[in-house]
Design a protein around this nucleic acid. Structure first.
Lengths: 236, 236
DNA sequence: ACACTACTGCCATTTTTTGACAGTATAGCA
DNA sequence: TGCTATACTGTCAAAAAATGGCAGTAGTGT
């Protein structure tokens, strides 16, 4: 295995640990000496990888991920940047920010001939959205979903009365006109959707919900399809 | 310069040439022997770079680009994939395909712990669009825009009569409900917008239009803003 | 036919990488 | 406080990889 390959693999290995891992262990995994690991880590750090080493503890790769060299075609780049543009226009505030960061990271490393073509983006997305949507910040909600945590929300829909519920959130739908949180509502014992603008306050609980986000999502999706079938049946 | 660095630099150099470049020249640029260049190119090809060499001609890096290792945060990845999802849902057919390719390339190199979290995308975009929009293929239009070529279109808007025009296309607006081509209409001697679904046929001409896409775009945009100002003025 | 070029094999030389060992420093813990 | 686990550095000889040179084959364009 050539050095370059090993450096890449080292990153992969580092990523696979959630907790600090000792250099010794890395050395065993990669079948090289500890000394070499120290050198490799120094090299990766020099290349910008966020690896943190603490004496007596080990190494952790700080959250984030390292995209190894990838080839993209012109059209793929256009798709990528168009998507990023959509997010930066219709995402909530932190997503917008992240999208712009991604765009600058990517365009920064684009070869100059392609960069020039991309500079005035030849593809654009729709009109700007309402200010209230642009200002929204769903970070805590996304974190709850990532961590599969129950949340407590104080919710006021447009039509119904204000209620307080415990929800197992598993996905957010991003629309041009708004965003919908989908989850299992523990209070109602059923799936439910919430317009994010109607969430007056929300608090993530420590409790992890008992089913995986994945399975909840699939269940819900299957339910949607079957409902669709019924509706179609009625219509026909 | 370490070998790894040189490999990356070799790609940069290759990109900077639009026409085939000989190995000899590359060797001079990078200050190594020709033999080493051959070896380096073989290495890059093995890593997936689309470099084509022809005897008697030289090397060309096929269009597309090599994304060097980049770090993205979790939120940035979410933004990236959400955007890609939007494109794969609302793009025309080739863009949809490219978006899916991008998604698979990216998720393929994602560390497994993050990959798992992304598998059921916790963020989603709106409802599917009309089939007719999904089937549309705007490749030739995008190519004309990239190459700043004039196009001849046979156009039928919903309200007005069918017309034939020569247009300098410079951008496409992607909306959830359709797509708008924006360009300078040579026939009408003014900027104009065309619903892409109304384009009955289109032919890219060999002729490059005389102003840069960039400047056309800026002009047009300024015009839009000033119109907006007038409308605002009326409203107030 | 000729010039130019990609590409391969071989080998001696040069450079880089590696492992080993010795040593310093720091964090966490009892 | 000591003890252990660990990060990290310096040095050096051995091993491995990279390099350049050269000779040769083959494809392309003029």
């Amino acid at each position: 295995m050539t050095r370059t390959e090993r450096l890449l693999k080292l990153l992969q290995v580092l990523r696979s640990y959630r907790y600090p891992v000792s250099g010794q262990r890395l050395a065993e995994r990669l079948d090289v000496s500890l000394r070499t690991i120290y050198r490799d880590i120094a090299t990766l750090q020099a290349q910008g990888a966020q690896i943190e080493g603490e004496a007596g503890v080990g190494y952790v790769l700080k959250p984030g991920f390292f995209l190894p060299p990838l080839m993209f075609s012109q059209t793929e780049i256009e798709a990528l940047l168009l998507g990023i543009q959509w997010v930066s226009q219709y995402g909530d505030k932190p997503l917008t920010q992240s999208a712009m960061d991604v765009a600058s990271k990517i365009t920064h490393v684009l070869p100059s001939n392609i960069k020039k073509e991309m500079h005035t983006l030849s593809l654009r997305v729709g009109p700007p959205m309402k200010e209230i949507l642009a200002k929204e910040d769903l970070t805590s909600l996304r974190e709850a979903i990532r961590g599969q945590k129950k949340i407590y929300i104080d919710y006021q829909s447009q039509k119904k009365a204000r209620t307080q519920q415990i929800v197992w959130p598993f996905t957010i739908g991003y629309f041009t006109t708004g965003r919908i949180l989908v989850g299992w509502c523990e209070t109602k014992n059923d799936y439910d959707c919430f317009n994010t603008l109607g969430i007056i306050s929300m608090k993530a609980l420590d409790e992890t919900y008992p089913r995986s986000r994945d399975s909840l999502f699939r269940d819900w999706q299957a339910l949607q399809f079957s409902k669709l079938g019924i509706i179609r049946g009625k219509k026909n």
